[in-house]
């Protein structure tokens, strides 16, 4: 059982993320990756729907599990993975490539999702899966959405965003001690533990200063000591409709209208349509499509 604890972001959100997100992922990269291999169906469907020759960005690619998709048309599109964790990128390079051969090596870039490293509007699509919820302020989450909008084609760019929801799946192993009205409107900042166990060997020194290290005896009969390390990752758990509101705020600030091309094309030149938005298995997601009038 994993207990989630509420937290409050103090001081500078960037250094907060450095300590409670980036450092943690660099430390748990291998273990984390071994548990994150199955693509979520809606994301796989989204990538399958893209035409040959499209290029896209996976912003916060993690271990790169979406980079090899679609499975049935390998190399028909090219997804470039960007992440803040160098150790996860080392894994993402070989995503979908068990033998770690140099064939089908993935394109990955070490960077920040708030960075502006791409030529404007150059991608056909962008996905951001389970990433924006690691940003520690509303302004930074909004900027992350704006970076996605800015990096895709204003004419046909497509975007898919997934974030973690307060509303948890009944099957979720995570226990959530939050239940008040305020939380359900504004979202909630939390720490989510990541637990790693490994045998207590000598070369595993206590190198992680701020992690809890506890020794516990294996089940009866075995004398091996195990070290359990607990790492706390920062998340902003999204409230219902918070993601949609964030997209609205981000788009408006960029001068885009929100709605279908048909509805707005006479008054506005650029816009973004919300193709679908929903909750799926403890996450909210939103799919967007950019449009631009021809004149």
């Amino acid at each position: 059982m994993q207990n989630i604890t509420p937290t409050v972001v103090v001081n500078d959100p960037q250094s907060y993320e450095d300590r409670h997100v980036h450092t943690v992922y660099d430390q748990i990269a291998t273990h984390f990756s071994s548990t994150r291999y199955k693509p979520w169906p809606i994301i796989a469907q989204f990538l399958s729907s893209l035409p040959d020759g499209w290029i896209g960005l996976d912003s916060g690619t993690g271990n790169g599990k979406y980079l090899p998709l679609p499975v049935d048309r390998p190399n028909s599109i090219l997804t470039i993975g960007l992440d803040r964790s160098r150790n996860l990128l080392e894994i993402a390079r070989y995503a979908g490539n068990e033998s770690q051969s140099h064939h089908n090596i993935r394109e990955v870039v070490w960077g920040d999702v708030l960075g502006d490293v791409w030529r404007s509007g150059i991608f056909d699509y962008a996905i951001s899966i389970a990433t924006i919820h690691h940003l520690a302020s509303y302004e930074r989450r909004k900027l992350a959405v704006q970076r996605l909008i800015q990096c895709v084609s204003p004419k046909h760019g497509r975007i898919l965003i997934y974030v973690w929801a307060i509303e948890q799946d009944k099957l979720s192993k995570r226990k959530l001690p939050l239940d008040d009205q305020q939380v359900h409107q504004a979202g909630q900042d939390v720490f989510v533990p990541w637990v790693m166990s490994h045998p207590n060997t000598k070369n595993r020194a206590k190198k992680h200063g701020d992690t809890l290290i506890s020794n516990s005896r294996e089940s009866e009969g075995e004398q091996t000591l195990k070290i359990t390390e607990v790492y706390h990752r920062y998340y902003h758990m999204f409230a219902k409709e918070e993601l949609t509101q964030l997209v609205h705020d981000a788009a408006r600030e960029l001068g885009l209208c929100i709605g279908s091309f048909e509805g707005f094309s006479e008054q506005h030149s650029r816009g973004i349509d919300i193709v679908q938005e929903s909750w799926e298995r403890s996450n909210y997601f939103v799919e967007l499509k950019c449009w631009q009038s021809s004149d």
Binding site: R84, L89, E90, R93, V109, G111, G115
Partner: peptide, 10 residues
């Protein structure tokens, strides 16, 4: 190691 570093200092 094949990975470009596009991070900037603050």
């Amino acid at each position: 190691n094949g990975i470009p570093n596009m991070l900037l200092a603050e």
